[in-house]
Simulated assay, not measured.
Amino acid sequence: MKKMQNKSNQGSEWSLGNRIKRNKASYVMLAPYFILFFFFTVLPVLTSTALSFTNFNVLEPPKFIFWENYIRLFLNDDIFKIALKNTLVFAVITGPISYFMCLVFAWIINEFKGKTRAFLTLIFYAPSISGNAYIVWNLILKGDRFGYLNGLLLKWDFIQSAVIWMKTEKYVLPMLIIVQLWLSLGTGFLTFIAGLQTVDKTLYEAAAVDGIKNRWQELWYITLPSMKPQLMFGAVMQITQAFAVSDISIQLAGNPSVNYAGTTIVTHLLDYGSIRYEMGYASAIAVILFLLMIGTNKLIQNVLRKVGN
């Protein structure tokens, strides 16, 4: 019996070796991506996980302290609790809304043809790549009567005096959410546009014969199932954006923001990693963020598998 198992193991190894030899060109072509992925994604994640169990200030060798960083994070760091709450609010609100915005706008724009579709795609995509986005929103949210938002509200008598939007605690998070939604039509949006254009048109004709009666049924039973890879990729991108919010908070509300109203996990991480140089503690924050992203991605994948069923 053992001899048979050994022979089967040798056979599987031999067949694997044969497969590698037969597809040598494919492995060679994959090698550059794999090397870059390993050194710039896998290795940093493993290194960060290892450092999260140490006290490391960059200048001295890491000292192993086991769970102390995580105990400090959850039991003694009140700012992290605020950052975690803000990040979850961002993710719960901006994640699903921006995802459906990307899908709906892509679906509508896909109905146009040629240059009109290309122009509309550019218009919707431009804010996500514009380097002047924060300059525009700083002008809109300026805390005096010369700010565009204050100017309009004063003109229409909705307010009696100018509001310092990004220095008033109750307004900081809602304003950041609005700006994030405005910037959210990015890579996921382009992915949906591309996915919609690859759907086989003959499927719609076959569906009409089978009893599909309206565009909503076409969308649910034909369009969305045909672009599941794009839906999955778009979900990953939107989740990453929702959990990795930092730039808009720093640019508009400052770091730290008033009473930490705009603090997120990433801004908290940057505080300890880039300013205080407590790299072990910053790595622990990064690990928690990584686990949140992984868990949310798994949940979304399970939901998207039911699309069209």
Rank of each mutant, 00 (worst) to 15 (best):
Y33N: 14
Y33Q: 12
Y33T: 14
F34S: 10
F34I: 14
F34A: 14
F34V: 13
I35V: 14
I35F: 13
L36I: 13
L36A: 13
F37V: 04
F37P: 01
F39A: 01
F39W: 10
F40A: 07
F40K: 02
F40T: 11
F40S: 07
F40V: 08
T41H: 05
T41P: 00
T41Y: 05
T41E: 03
T41K: 08
T41I: 08
V42W: 00
V42C: 03
V42N: 02
P44T: 05
P44N: 07
P44W: 03
P44M: 09
L46S: 04
L46T: 00
L46K: 00
L46C: 08
L46V: 04
L46W: 01
T47L: 14
T47D: 05
T47F: 08
S48K: 05
S48H: 04
S48G: 15
S48E: 11
T49N: 04
T49F: 15
T49Y: 09
A50G: 01
A50D: 00
A50K: 11
A50L: 15
L51W: 07
L51C: 05
S52R: 02
S52C: 04
S52E: 09
F53D: 02
F53I: 01
T54M: 06
T54A: 06
N55H: 13
N55Y: 12
N55Q: 15
N55T: 11
F56A: 01
F56D: 01
F56G: 01
F56Q: 01
N57M: 12
N57R: 13
N57T: 12
V58H: 04
V58L: 15
V58N: 11
V58P: 00
V58Y: 06
V58K: 13
L59D: 04
L59M: 14
E60G: 03
P61H: 05
P61I: 05
P61S: 13
P61R: 10
P62A: 14
P62N: 12
P62D: 13
P62R: 13
P62S: 10
P62M: 14
K63F: 12
K63E: 15
F64E: 11
F64I: 14
F64D: 09
I65P: 05
I65H: 09
I65R: 06
I65K: 10
I65D: 08
F66R: 05
W67E: 12
W67G: 12
E68D: 15
E68G: 04
E68M: 11
N69R: 06
N69P: 08
N69D: 11
Y70W: 07
Y70N: 08
I71Q: 13
I71F: 06
R72Q: 14
R72C: 03
R72F: 09
R72P: 00
L73R: 02
L73K: 02
F74T: 05
F74N: 05
F74Y: 11
F74P: 10
N76T: 08
N76P: 00
D77F: 09
D77E: 09
D77I: 04
D77V: 03
D77Q: 06
D78Q: 07
D78F: 00
I79D: 01
I79S: 02
I79V: 10
